[in-house]
């Protein structure tokens, strides 16, 4: 029981990341009809927002270390700490939450720039060319990040207060054996909130209603005198923000490096396909389901029966789904079925 709960949490956690990226991917596909292979790069850019914020906050000056008397020793003290003492230290400690505030406008700008600067020229071109050009863009972004930040993962810890683990087992009456890092729980809740607000935006606001109408029949909405293109552009920006936030929040779990985007992209694409191209609910559902299945497949009990299953389960499910139900779990009939 303990193990199952733990794996369930692990799966939900991983699933949260998949679901957030896949949600953005499928929003972009549903609105603009573009297959965005650079979406993983947006996730990675979000993560590196956190890295940059941390680097900015910890810009340091050299001061003489008074505690060492035998020789002249110097230590680096961040300016923030030098100016504001403990408050400054606390700000540095909260680098990751702070970078969320910075990531939102930044990712929005990047998303808008990407759509206006590149993607819009590819609406009319075949899917293969869309894949290729965004693939090229992903390589370029990845290499730029590598040139700037190097190839090694950069640790960006969560704030001190929540660095420990929560006693999840006690909450559900399983005793003290199940502990789980606080940050991962927060990540899970965060993913839920972001997904819920994206759905609320699309389903409960007039703006979202127009966007959904545009997804269903772009031409008619255009004929009603609505500038649907502009709305779609903004939606693209939102998808970029969602991917970026997923990246920012993921940094304490996985120290970001330049190829994390590509790693997640391949899986997220599989998630989108399993959920159904263009289906928002499908992407979220498939994200969590695949995440949970993956973490259960990596249990030793399962592995001893089916060796290697943890490595391939996601792809295997994708293959089965594509062959049996090509429109995906929640895909609408007739959307990209061939």
């Amino acid at each position: 029981m303990d193990v199952i709960l733990l794996q369930l949490l692990n799966g939900l956690d991983k699933g949260g990341a998949y679901a957030l990226i896949a949600l953005g991917l499928t929003i972009i596909f549903g609105t603009l009809g573009v297959v965005n292979f650079a979406h993983g790069a947006l996730f990675m850019l979000g993560a590196f927002c956190a890295v940059s914020v941390q680097a900015l906050l910890t810009i340091s000056k050299k001061v003489k270390d008074e505690s060492i008397k035998f020789f002249d020793a110097y230590k680096e003290i961040p300016y923030l700490e030098a100016w504001w003492g403990d408050t400054g230290a606390m700000i540095i400690d909260y680098a990751v939450p702070i970078s969320i505030l910075i990531a939102i406008p930044l990712m929005l700008l990047i998303g808008l720039g990407m759509e206006r600067g590149l993607i819009r020229y590819f609406y009319k071109r075949p899917h293969a060319e869309q894949i290729l050009v965004t693939f090229g863009l992903a390589i370029v972004v990845q290499e730029l990040i590598k040139a700037q930040f190097g190839a090694n993962p950069i640790p960006t810890p969560a704030p001190e207060v929540i660095a420990g683990s929560a006693n999840v087992g006690l909450w559900v009456g399983l005793g003290e054996s199940v502990v789980y890092p606080w940050w991962r729980l927060i990540y899970l809740a965060f993913a839920g909130v972001v997904i819920a607000s994206a759905f609320a935006f699309l389903n409960l606001t007039t703006y979202g209603m127009v966007v959904r109408a545009g997804m269903a029949d772009r031409e008619t909405v255009g004929l009603l005198g609505i500038n649907i293109q502009r709305r779609f552009t903004i939606v693209f920006g939102m998808a970029a923000v969602i991917a970026g936030l997923a990246g920012v929040m993921y940094t304490p779990i996985l120290p970001p490096d330049y190829h994390m985007g590509m790693d997640f992209l391949v899986l997220s694409f599989v998630v989108v396909v399993v959920g159904g191209m263009g289906s928002l609910g499908g992407a979220v559902l498939a994200g969590f389901v695949l995440g949970i299945l993956q973490s259960f497949a990596s249990m030793n009990e399962v592995k001893s029966i089916l060796p290697g299953i943890d490595q391939i389960i996601i792809y295997l499910i994708a293959v089965v789904i594509l062959l049996v139900r090509p429109r995906g779990l929640l895909g609408r009939k007739g959307v990209m079925e061939s």
């Binding site: 899917h127 599989v270 490595q311 792809y315």
Partner: peptide, 28 residues
């Protein structure tokens, strides 16, 4: 198997198979 689908689905199916082979070659 892959050719039962075309377009982007074909791309993703082949990608999935290649990643499976890669992961299996590394592990089992």
């Amino acid at each position: 198997i892959s050719l039962r689908r075309s377009g982007i689905y074909f791309s993703i199916l082949t990608l999935a198979f290649a990643q499976m082979s890669y992961n299996l070659a590394y592990s089992v």
